[in-house]
Simulated assay, not measured.
Amino acid sequence: MFDVLVTVLTYVAAVLVTLVLIVMAVAYRFRHFQDMLLYHPQEPAGSRTAVDSPRDHGVSRYEVLDIRTPDGLTLRGFLVQPPTGASRCVITYFHGNAGNVGHRIPIARLLAERVGATVVMMDYRGYGQSDSGSAAAAPSEAGLKVDANAVMEYVLGRDDLRRLPQFVMGTSLGGAVTIYLASQQRYDRVVAGFIVENSFTSISDMADVVFAPVIARRIPGWRGKLLTFTLSKIIKPVVLYIGWWSIDAVRHVTAPTLFISAAKDELVPPSHVHALHDAAVKSSLRRFVTLPDSTHNDAPAAKGYAEHISGFVHDVLQRRGHHLGSSTA
């Protein structure tokens, strides 16, 4: 009897392992579909072709930038300077999912005018007017990390920018890009501080945020809970290839970091930003700011938004012993 039980269990285990391997193989083969589900460069309509220029938003001092990546793609975006030409620092800004840099020019103008920063913002591959149309140019986690490094190398390699204090800022998906950069040792000494706004702990955690409420509405009771558990704990770890494990990467961040959270964020739960802040235990200066009346996309319009960023820049530069007056870019 015992031998029969062992045989049955062995057979069942073999079948389960085979099924898992098949599912993993299929998921890997079609992993680009996960990228298509996550990244939305085509939204809103026209975002891949129509990109506002800074001049369209009343900015007179700007440059159009083209940056080449190591894998041969061209990223396109803008450099926006303070209206007086006096730059306190450089803020390299990474935008969120959907849209393009043209949609974020009001943010660049705000940072230039109210913080006194020279702002560099580029579209990722596949976004805006950056290169697209090939498999390599399709947005992906690996590709966006290559893009981020290329942008940083451009900024740090340009004489008029590298002599200024460096800050890196990202919103939502851009926050994950920012945390990735902040966790890299090569940027520890050259970047004064990082700013993370309304970002998530991981794509895995965001999958739970998106699908759990849907299942609860469609399948109430214990059946829905069982399905949620099965998807989250058994299927998702096997099939999900997109990581953006910011909750792990942020543990390696040593530079000063400002976390900004919109209390009424309807896309990324504020608890994610709290978790990122709490996990950044090695950061030499952690700061958390809550915007009580803001949602995911309107944080820059909140009262005190620019002042929080400006105050963080001031305190970081004071700690580093920088002259707090202006210098010309």
Score class of each variant (00 low, 15 high):
273 V>C: 02
260 I>A: 11
290 T>F: 14
284 S>H: 09
301 A>S: 11
276 L>C: 00
273 V>I: 09
266 E>I: 02
265 D>T: 10
270 P>F: 07
288 F>Y: 15
285 L>I: 04
258 L>A: 01
280 A>N: 03
271 S>M: 06
293 D>P: 00
299 A>L: 07
286 R>S: 12
283 S>Y: 06
283 S>E: 06
296 H>Y: 07
259 F>H: 03
264 K>E: 12
275 A>Y: 00
295 T>E: 15
280 A>F: 02
274 H>F: 05
296 H>G: 09
297 N>C: 09
265 D>V: 04
270 P>A: 07
275 A>H: 02
266 E>Y: 04
285 L>N: 11
274 H>G: 01
291 L>F: 12
270 P>H: 06
267 L>Y: 08
269 P>R: 09
284 S>Y: 14
259 F>T: 06
291 L>G: 06
278 D>V: 05
285 L>M: 13
283 S>F: 06
279 A>Y: 01
260 I>K: 06
272 H>G: 01
300 P>G: 06
287 R>L: 09
281 V>F: 08
277 H>M: 01
276 L>H: 00
280 A>K: 02
270 P>Q: 14
275 A>K: 07
280 A>Q: 03
292 P>H: 12
296 H>A: 13
298 D>E: 07
265 D>G: 15
292 P>W: 11
283 S>A: 13
298 D>Y: 04
294 S>L: 05
261 S>C: 13
286 R>L: 05
269 P>D: 06
258 L>G: 01
